[in-house]
């Protein structure tokens, strides 16, 4: 077995451990994915909820705020991620003190993902039956309680579905951020595998990312199945 691995994946073995090795890269990818998913998740949910409740047919309509947020989300969603990385460099340094490495990638990852997730949250919550919202209003619930006890609760399966989708697209972005100095498996595949013609490194990097994607998709699907009645 060890012989086979040595024979077919020589460069993977050579690059497995050490500061720029696979083990570190895997951790970097997981770190970038989950830390930015956490923050993008919070921003995305807050923005998404605000978009739903301030819309014309929402529970607290506010045209000015809705228009502003709607445009803001569209604006940031329109900027190609690779350009966003470069453009917000100074802002990134202000927030996390560095622009390279996995931590330097966090700020652009959050800013690149939050608007996307906000849209997903908006779409998920708009799907919540308007009649149920009306029933909650008739019962005498405050807007805050309607958000927490109706929107987030009834919309939970759909939120998890879009959360899964967002994390998977986020993994794609970490690979891109990695290529311009963020580290992780994307960096491994490009700066080691691709640029040094070590194809086995590229392929294994890709496979590891696929495993991560499948695990997340599987967990998401499982949670949705448990929650839907």
């Amino acid at each position: 077995m060890a012989d086979l691995v040595n024979k077919f994946l020589p460069n993977v073995v050579a690059n497995w451990e050490g500061d720029n090795g696979f083990v570190v890269a895997i951790w970097q990818t997981l770190y970038m994915t989950f830390v930015s998913a956490f923050f993008a998740g919070i921003f995305g949910i807050v923005l998404g909820i605000l978009l739903v409740v301030t819309a014309d047919d929402g529970i607290t309509p506010n045209k000015a705020l809705y228009t502003f947020l709607d445009k803001l989300v569209n604006l940031f969603r329109s900027i190609p991620f690779i350009i966003l990385l470069a453009v917000i460099g100074p802002f990134t340094r202000l927030i996390v003190g560095q622009t390279i490495g996995p931590t330097g990638a966090l700020v652009p990852l959050v800013i690149g993902t939050a608007p996307f997730f906000a849209r997903q949250v908006q779409l998920a919550l708009v799907e919540v039956d308007h009649g149920v919202i009306e029933a909650a209003e008739a019962i005498g619930l405050s807007p805050m309680k309607i958000i927490f006890r109706v929107y987030l609760r009834e919309g939970l399966p759909e939120l998890i579905r879009s959360g899964t989708l967002t994390i998977i697209s986020l993994i794609g972005l970490t690979a891109m951020a990695g290529a311009v100095g963020g580290g992780g498996l994307g960096n491994m595949a490009i700066s080691v595998g691709y640029q040094r013609f070590e194809n086995d490194v590229t392929i294994v990097s890709m496979l590891l990312i696929l495993v991560l994607v499948f695990v997340i998709q599987g967990l998401g699907d499982f949670a949705v199945r448990k929650l839907e009645h």
Binding site: D129, G131, A135, R153, E154, L227, H229
Partner: peptide
């Protein structure tokens, strides 16, 4: 003031 609706409007969750 209780209210009931044509489509029941129950919480599915």
């Amino acid at each position: 003031i209780g209210m009931i609706f044509q489509h029941f409007n129950l919480m599915n969750s």
